[in-house]
């Protein structure tokens, strides 16, 4: 990269970028700030610092039930979408079958279609099958919709990995089964962890599909949604702040993993012709 073009100063652009950043961060800052405000959400400036809303939150049974439900659904969705997504990525990378192009597009549809369409389609399917709406249908919906994310990430991982390594493994006497467990999967482990984290976060936050598939037990976003109708309280700010904090921790984990992978790739680069 040329030093001259990358460090040239552009003061007007810099100011504009700062404004955009302010716009992006304003709601988040407001949210966190007012979760510590004794007089509730609204009014300016925020006055008395308090942890009351957090105290209230920790004794709020339904919220924690919904958090548990969300964790259950998200863990299941990660397992389901990674399993099917891994096979789908392998199939797209290595097999050729009739309708492959269609399959590729179909898998990706939930990623690019509005959630309401996927959610309603699945609702019709559940109703047709005669099943009851429950956390299980939510898990099924999340898992299926997020196969798109798993397939995209893992397919990219497969494309980056060196095919010669699998050939080397077969060449050294390993069966395809051994090669899959000893070479293919370990080579994909970063993509697997990254996809898993992403799917987990997306599932924890999913609302459009969940909206139509939910039964009696709420996930966290739907619990919050339900409370918003009854009016806004700083307790929601408090739980949102906690969700934000967990997200930030996950981001940091994700970057650690990514930096590590980038690091090893960088080390290998000079050896490659």
């Amino acid at each position: 990269m040329s030093r001259s073009t990358s460090t040239r100063r552009a003061p007007i652009l810099a100011i504009y970028a700062t404004v955009v950043f302010a716009f992006i961060y304003l709601p988040i800052v407001v949210l966190i700030l007012y979760s510590f405000n004794r007089d509730g959400v609204g009014g300016f400036p925020p006055s008395h610092l308090t942890l009351d809303w957090y105290r209230q939150l920790f004794t709020d049974g339904p919220i924690w039930d919904s958090v548990l439900n969300s964790l259950l659904v998200a863990s299941g969705a990660v397992a389901l979408s990674l399993t099917v997504g891994l096979l789908a990525a392998l199939a797209l990378d290595r097999a050729s079958f009739p309708g492959k192009a269609l399959f590729r597009r179909l898998v990706l549809l939930p990623l690019i279609l509005p959630g309401i369409i996927t959610g309603l389609s699945l609702l019709m399917f559940v109703v047709l099958s005669g099943a009851q709406l429950s956390l299980f249908t939510v898990f099924l919906g999340h898992g299926t919709a997020l196969i798109s994310v798993a397939t995209t990430e893992l397919f990219a991982g497969l494309q980056k990995s060196d095919r010669a390594q699998e050939e080397a493994s077969l060449d050294l006497g390993a069966t395809p089964w051994q090669t899959f467990w000893r070479i293919t999967l370990p080579n994909l482990r970063l993509a697997l962890v990254a996809a898993g984290l992403l799917i987990f976060t997306l599932s924890m936050d999913e609302i459009a599909v969940t909206f139509f598939l939910i039964g009696r037990d709420n996930t966290l976003p739907l619990e919050i949604w339900g409370r918003l109708r009854r009016g806004i309280t700083p307790e929601i700010n408090a739980v949102s702040t906690l969700v934000f904090a967990v997200s930030v921790v996950l981001i940091i984990v994700w970057y650690r993993i990514r930096m590590r992978s980038v690091g090893t790739e960088a080390q290998q680069l000079p050896e490659r012709p």
Binding site: A168, D171, T175, P176
Partner: peptide, 20 residues
């Protein structure tokens, strides 16, 4: 025979060492 049943081994162009 599949590759893993051949008593033939290969030194690959870019070595294909397993990085993990």
């Amino acid at each position: 025979l599949p590759p893993y049943k051949r008593r033939v081994n290969t030194v690959f162009q870019n070595y294909a060492l397993f990085p993990h």
